[in-house]
Design a binder for these strands. Structure first.
Lengths: 263, 263
DNA sequence: TGTTATGATTTTACTTGTAAAGTCATAATA
DNA sequence: TATTATGACTTTACAAGTAAAATCATAACA
């Protein structure tokens, strides 16, 4: 009856709750992020958590505790919570009422939704960019394509992935629409971890580079509507490759992730 | 009625700062909003403020004080701030560091950006909806068009505006993509106040109804790509009408708004 | 008169505190 | 053994407090 056992947890070998307790590696990853000049604390927290999710350091399904994040990032809980609210409206994390935030699972259905959005926005960005880009800027695109070819020759798929993102992001920049910029940025960036996860399972992206060249050519020719169509089908093909690769792997969710052995 | 007793404000006839001090009408508008079943306070605040902005009760440029909102809505500052952060990422309000939130100004440049986004997303929604809608649902669209005709006959432009929104929103629903739904919802809804502001200055939307009919016909025929094109040019025309109307009026920003005489 | 300095006031930006709700281990019960 | 009850513990959801910064009115000064 009044055995009064373990009043304040005398940390024995008893299996703890393990609700979170991020590994030391992840903690250092989070706290060492270069959030250089950001003066506002919520913005710093936003960038740090987003970056960690993007690089699968915080794997899908992982719970994100505001107290723990606050401790790691060296701030109080409020700015962390603010950043989580923002990440939630963008789709990076999911709020389970009275339970907290978890990293959004990485499942085909979700990716499909993101792709449908990004395809459309990417397309319109290309259409607008075609009218608004200068010669200089188009040359910059060409430069990025050359870099991609180099990365492919060296079989550096990680570098290629980064360069591909840069290529598409640059086109969006050229559209000169900050709102479009913001939405595409947060949405398309959520595809990155799926690409990372399936990086060895997809065909070598030789064809992507060819398509990039074709897109640039049509931009140079000044045919906005053709650019839109090509970008859209380009994304569509990439989508299918990733979804197929994902199907051959276990869905990346809470249960299937071993937090200890993860990167 | 929460007719608070002006705590220590010696309210003489001295010209006060007037930084905010919302009129009684606006206060009651805000506090009487039907945020029925919403259990979470931040969600209630979000809906209330968004609704007030949408209906121009909180005019562009108006500063939104978290303390004041908290008082009006009967909650503390924390959930209000959370809702403002969300409204900021969606573009409804703008955060000026260390100064606070203001309702986003209603200027052509901004509207143009929103339209570019919505055109693309609306288009893809129509394309997807064409494959995914049932007969029942297409009939529902037809019903909405009939209502629009009635509203036009009675010259009820306000009702027509609502029905037009419903028509487009319904198509987005049919695309069955929650993420797309969320983005379009928050973006296209920001156009509403521009429509409200220019409501008497635009041509009678007879042509819109005709185009709606044509769009529905092509959906029935099952031609997704045609639906996309038509929706896009439909929005494009609407955009031009509104931007033209807006040009003939004073830009709606802080300085030009008389807070006392506003609705 | 026009410009600058100053201080009171307002408001955010962030910290901290707390009640309620949910979770999980353990015990009681069938 | 399987199921249910119980209670300590964790964590959010919200409230409230504080310091720093920006603003604005007024005064001092050229």
């Amino acid at each position: 009856m009044n055995n009064q056992k373990t009043p304040q947890t005398p940390d024995s070998n008893v299996k703890r709750r393990d609700q979170s307790e991020l590994s030391l590696a992840v903690r250092s990853f989070l706290s060492n992020l270069d959030v250089n000049g950001e003066s506002r604390l919520p913005q710093r927290a936003y960038l740090a958590v987003r970056h960690a999710i993007r690089h699968l350091q915080l794997p899908p399904g992982q719970t994100v505790l505001e107290r723990e994040m606050a401790e790691i990032l060296g701030m109080s809980r409020t700015p962390v919570r603010e950043s989580l609210v923002r990440l939630e409206t963008e789709g990076w994390v999911r709020l389970i009422p009275r339970r907290g935030f978890i990293v959004a699972p990485l499942v085909a259905d979700d990716l499909q939704q993101i792709y449908e959005v990004v395809e459309a926005l990417d397309g319109v960005a290309g259409r607008l960019a075609t009218g608004r880009a200068t010669h200089e800027e188009l040359n910059q695109l060409e430069h990025l394509i050359e870099e991609q070819e180099k990365a492919l020759e060296q079989n550096d798929l990680l570098a290629w992935t980064e360069l591909d993102e840069q290529f598409h992001n640059y086109i969006v920049d050229l559209a000169q629409n900050p709102r479009l910029r913001g939405i595409v940025d947060s949405q398309s960036d959520q595809l990155y971890r799926a690409r990372l996860y399936t990086i060895g399972l997809r065909p070598k992206p030789t064809r992507s580079v060819i398509e990039h060249k074709a897109i640039l050519a049509v931009m140079r020719a000044g045919e906005p509507e053709a650019v839109r169509t090509m970008l859209q089908s380009h994304r569509y093909r990439a989508r299918n490759e990733i979804l197929e690769a994902l199907q051959s792997m276990p869905p990346l969710q809470e249960e299937t992730v071993n937090k200890e052995t993860f990167p």
